[in-house]
């Protein structure tokens, strides 16, 4: 091998172009049928909820990809698919180039991914002391050779998230929502993960506490080089943390774009409607024309493009044919109107 080739190979290794997470045409269906007997009596078929219905994206290492959308769009299901809490119905998930299921069978690989949850009151076991909660991953992965080292690591983590090492002896109910979320973050960090899935980590918090947690997460990302998959319904929050943003509607990605591009030139009609709907501080006394209608049921989604019943640009093609993601500038959009230049 020539010296030049070797240098190129080393360069490639340094740059490490393998994404942290790749999601390829992933779908996840849930069977929400009623029990067999009731179904037979009511003469109805199985009811399949298509929570996620074929989405693809990749998250390069050290960056943040956010998924936004209204409730029921499937974003939380994607979060759980990404750490293997649910198996996929279709498609595959690659973690650092390796099949997720295989990666999760190996505890060294498994310790590289962690998750932070929405509800600070349900995400900590009320019967455990904080030190035990944070030490759980350390024990599960055997990361501390002795109790003394484990205690030292827990104290370090508590300090890192802005709590006191003395807080380890307390129980979760002695803390406020924001402090509990800090404990959740400390637990997630205790296995030295590289990839963190954050499912609405601030939506249960008050706004001043939300700012604390968002700042903390950004600080930790910069210091530890973390990769984030960030789930939120709040576009303003997403703007503060993301490198790229995916907008989901009824189990599908409708737009995927760099954060700045999405906010400066939103392309999909749904993205635009979402932005228009957000009440904003600068808009006192503003009169708006909100998008009409509601999100349809994911059990029986509309034909063609799922957004067509609410879309001001919908035409016959939208009602019949589901659009696929196509490049538009540095973004990807799934919309016939954008394709045809009607947008």
């Amino acid at each position: 091998m020539s010296a030049a080739a070797e240098a190129r190979l080393a360069e490639a290794r340094r740059a490490d172009l393998t994404p942290m997470l790749e999601v390829e045409e992933v779908a996840r269906y849930f069977d929400v049928s009623r029990p067999l007997l009731q179904r037979l009596m009511a003469r109805e078929g199985r009811r399949i909820l298509r929570a996620v219905d074929g989405i693809s994206f990749a998250i390069p290492k050290g960056t943040t990809l956010s998924l936004v959308g209204e409730s029921g769009c499937g974003k939380s299901t994607v979060a759980r698919l990404a750490v293997g809490l649910y198996p996929t119905t279709r498609g595959r998930v690659l973690f650092d180039g390796q099949d997720l299921a295989r990666a999760r069978a190996d505890s060294a690989q498994r310790s590289r991914m962690q998750m932070i949850f929405q509800d600070p009151y349900a995400s900590l076991n009320p019967r455990w002391r904080v030190a035990d909660i944070i030490a759980e991953p350390i024990r599960a992965f055997g990361l501390a050779p002795s109790r003394v080292q484990e205690a030292a690591r827990v104290a370090e983590l508590l300090t890192q998230v802005g709590l006191s090492p003395l807080d380890g002896a307390k129980f979760p109910h002695e803390f406020s929502g924001g402090q509990r979320q800090r404990i959740s973050i400390a637990r997630a960090l205790s296995s030295n993960p590289e990839f963190l899935v954050c499912d609405e980590p601030t939506s249960a918090l008050d706004v001043s506490v939300q700012a604390q947690i968002l700042n903390l997460m950004k600080k930790l990302q910069a210091r530890l080089g973390l990769t984030f998959l960030f789930i939120s319904h709040n576009l303003a929050v997403v703007r503060q943390v993301s490198d790229r943003i995916g907008v989901m509607y009824l189990g599908k990605l409708v737009e995927l774009a760099p954060a700045e591009t999405l906010f400066t030139t939103p392309r999909h009609p749904y993205t635009r409607a979402l932005m228009e709907a957000i009440p904003d501080l600068g808009m006192t006394g503003r009169v708006r024309t909100p998008v009409g209608g509601e999100v349809p049921s994911p059990i029986s989604p509309p034909s063609g493009c799922a957004f067509h019943p609410r879309c001001p640009l919908a035409n016959d093609r939208c009602r019949a044919e589901a659009p696929v993601m196509r490049a538009a500038g540095d973004a990807q959009v799934a919309c016939h109107a954008v394709d045809e230049g009607r947008g």
């Binding site: 706004v207 001043s208 939300q210 700012a211 604390q212 968002l214 700042n215 950004k218 709040n234 576009l235 303003a236 929050v237 703007r239 503060q240 954060a259 700045e260 906010f263 932005m275 957000i278 904003d280 501080l281 600068g282």
Partner: peptide, 15 residues
């Protein structure tokens, strides 16, 4: 501490 929608800030003001 309300995150702004119209721009990205490096650090949000926090209480």
């Amino acid at each position: 501490s309300i995150p702004p929608l119209d721009r990205r800030v490096d650090r949000l003001q926090q209480i």
